[in-house]
Amino acid sequence: MNHEESALQVRGLTKRFDRLAVDALDLTVRMGEFYALLGPNGAGKTTTLRMVAGLLRPDAGSVSVLGIDALTDPVAAKQITAWVSDEPMIYDKLTPLEYLEFVAGLWGIDPRVSEPAAHDLLFSLGLEPHLYERCEGFSKGMRQKVALAGALVHDPRLIILDEPLTGLDAVSARHVKGLLGERVRAGCTVIMTTHILEVAERMADRIGVIASGRLVAEGTLAELRQQNGRNDTSLEDMFIALVDTKAVAA
């Protein structure tokens, strides 16, 4: 697969803190794909995605976002990318609409253009009763939804989400999943880390399992089952088997 066909191509990505967090990782995500990145705590998922989003400088390797080298031209790569962290940052003293207007401004979008999109996004996430309330009183789930709306307001082509469903109730989680599904159907690429394996099982086109900073398995659910040698096994069982094997090997 060449750069033009892939939404994200990572080669030899390496990052070391006190220990090696990401170890010469190779990862390719296709255009228009919903890709779930799974792994135990400390496996290097967040560090990988932070490097892709331009928030961390890798020690080695390359990152290509829709054919743009994200390390040599980070501005162009960031222009088409959205990042949502697991700890959503929104300004307590702004309303959701004001926050979305600010985020759109960061991407250079005129408020007159971004305002209808902001309304639509907040409506689709069930936040219409809170459009003009300041975010300071919002629950974690509501903050997560506002942050997600902020990430989508500039119409990104690559959406990177780190644990977007953590802390959401069932209704909110459904809103978020619905919105992400819509984006994928519209041609966006979504990369998401999650500990909720049913979500990966149900939503992801392909799943990657990362352990100790390396990709230990990748494919569709059926392909992962095939690699695991058992057709009836659940993703949870496969995940535990893969991660345990890796831990034993390490």
């Binding site: 989003a53 331009g54 928030l55 501005v75 162009a76 960031k78 222009q79 990318t81 959205a82 990042w83 962290s85 700890e87 940052m89 300004y91 985020v103 960061l106 991407w107 250079g108 902020g150």
Partner: peptide, 13 residues
Amino acid sequence: ARADLDLIMSSPV
């Protein structure tokens, strides 16, 4: 304390 550096640094600004 505002912790908005992630948001700002992930944008093309």
